Computed example of a mutant assay.
Amino acid sequence: MPAAALKNKPLPTQSTAKRSVLFDSPYAPMAKHRLPAGRPREWYVTHNRRLKAMRLAIALLDSGVYLANQAHDETIRSTAEEIGVHPPSNTTCHMVRALMRYSR
């Protein structure tokens, strides 16, 4: 095994999670695209919430949180901080857990 693979990963700083969340690769912001015009406002809110929940669920899975009951609100919010998105609402946290529950 190469010596580079044996190095310890740096610990995250100022995390509010009970369990540390480490990422193997950095997350870059997605390219923004315009959404279709003429839809009701609620459609846009739901669409953006689903995208955010999906990004958070993927980041949690990448960090080793595989079960929905391991993804507490504070874990999800600290993951959001790590990947650079605004802290999710309670509804979005619930949606993240639902996505993780049905991803198996």
Results as ranks from 00 to 15, higher is better:
E82F: 05
T79C: 15
A68T: 07
S78Y: 00
R19W: 07
I76R: 00
K9D: 07
V65Y: 07
M100L: 05
T91D: 13
N69D: 14
P10T: 03
R97F: 01
Q14D: 15
T75E: 06
M100S: 01
V21H: 12
P40M: 06
P87C: 04
A57P: 04
V85Y: 07
C93Q: 01
H72E: 10
G38F: 08
D24E: 15
E74S: 06
S63P: 03
L22Y: 09
R19E: 09
K9G: 02
R39K: 14
E42H: 07
M54Q: 11
S25Q: 13
R49G: 04
A37T: 15
Y66L: 08
K7T: 12
N69W: 05
L60P: 01
H33K: 15
K52A: 11
T79W: 09
T92L: 05
N90W: 06
T91V: 13
P36I: 07
A31T: 13
T16E: 14
V96G: 00
A3M: 07
G64R: 01
K52L: 13
N90Y: 11
V45Y: 04
A4G: 02
R19Q: 11
E82M: 11
V45H: 02
L67K: 14
A3H: 06
R39A: 11
Q14R: 12
S15E: 08
V85A: 04
S15A: 06
W43V: 02
R77I: 02
Y44R: 00
I83W: 05
I83T: 00
R50E: 12
R55N: 10
E74I: 03
M95G: 02
R97A: 01
Q14N: 15
C93Y: 00
P87N: 05
M100T: 01
K18Q: 08
N90E: 12
R104V: 01
G64H: 01
R101L: 07
V65N: 01
I76S: 00
P87K: 07
L99T: 00
K18H: 06
T91Q: 12
A5F: 05
T13H: 06
G64Q: 00
L67S: 14
W43H: 08
D24N: 15
A17Y: 00
